[in-house]
Simulated scan of single mutants.
Amino acid sequence: MSESQKMQVGDASPSEVMRDAPRILEALRADIQKGADSGQGVAAETVFAEVRERIAQVGSAQSGGR
């Protein structure tokens, strides 16, 4: 889990949020850069369509193909 995902503002005082903000923002920038450097992305709708198809296949297999 990245540093940006670990931050829970609801549990922190305003001064803690301000103190940690630069570190959190830098971690977020690093996460964004890592994603950008990982290659060409895939459209979300393409991913969702594939997941829906897999779910349908699992559901069909569990129900005996009914």
Rank of each mutant, 00 (worst) to 15 (best):
M1Y: 06
M1F: 07
M1W: 03
S2L: 04
S2A: 11
E3N: 04
E3V: 06
E3I: 07
E3C: 01
S4R: 02
S4H: 04
S4E: 09
S4A: 15
M7Q: 06
M7L: 12
Q8A: 12
Q8H: 10
V9Q: 08
G10M: 05
G10D: 12
D11W: 05
D11G: 10
A12N: 03
A12S: 08
A12Y: 03
P14I: 07
P14G: 08
P14Q: 10
E16S: 06
E16C: 03
E16Y: 05
E16N: 04
E16H: 03
M18F: 06
M18V: 09
M18N: 04
M18R: 08
M18A: 15
M18T: 08
R19K: 15
R19H: 14
D20Y: 01
D20Q: 11
D20S: 12
D20V: 04
D20G: 08
A21S: 10
A21W: 03
P22T: 07
P22D: 05
R23H: 12
R23G: 10
R23C: 04
I24S: 02
I24K: 00
L25V: 11
L25P: 00
L25I: 11
A27C: 11
A27V: 12
A27P: 02
R29H: 13
R29K: 14
R29M: 14
A30R: 11
A30K: 11
A30L: 10
D31C: 05
D31S: 12
D31H: 01
I32D: 13
I32Q: 15
I32N: 15
I32T: 15
I32V: 15
Q33S: 14
K34Y: 04
K34C: 08
G35E: 14
G35I: 12
A36C: 09
A36K: 13
D37K: 11
D37I: 05
S38E: 15
S38I: 10
S38Q: 15
S38M: 14
G39Q: 11
G39A: 13
Q40V: 13
Q40P: 05
Q40T: 15
Q40C: 08
Q40I: 09
G41F: 06
G41I: 06
G41Q: 09
V42A: 13
V42E: 09
A43V: 14
A43T: 09
A44T: 07
A44G: 05
A44H: 03
E45Q: 10
E45G: 02
E45H: 06
T46P: 01
T46W: 01
V47C: 07
V47S: 10
V47E: 12
F48H: 07
F48Q: 13
A49H: 05
A49K: 14
A49R: 12
A49C: 02
E50F: 03
E50W: 01
E50M: 06
E50D: 14
V51T: 11
R52V: 05
R52I: 05
E53T: 06
E53Y: 02
E53K: 04
R54E: 10
R54S: 10
I55A: 10
I55S: 07
I55N: 06
I55Y: 02
I55P: 00
A56C: 00
A56V: 01
A56I: 01
V58D: 04
V58W: 00
G59H: 02
G59F: 00
G59K: 08
S60Q: 09
A61Q: 06
Q62W: 01
Q62M: 10
Q62K: 07
S63A: 09
S63D: 13
S63G: 05
S63R: 13
S63E: 09
G64A: 02
R66M: 08
R66Q: 13
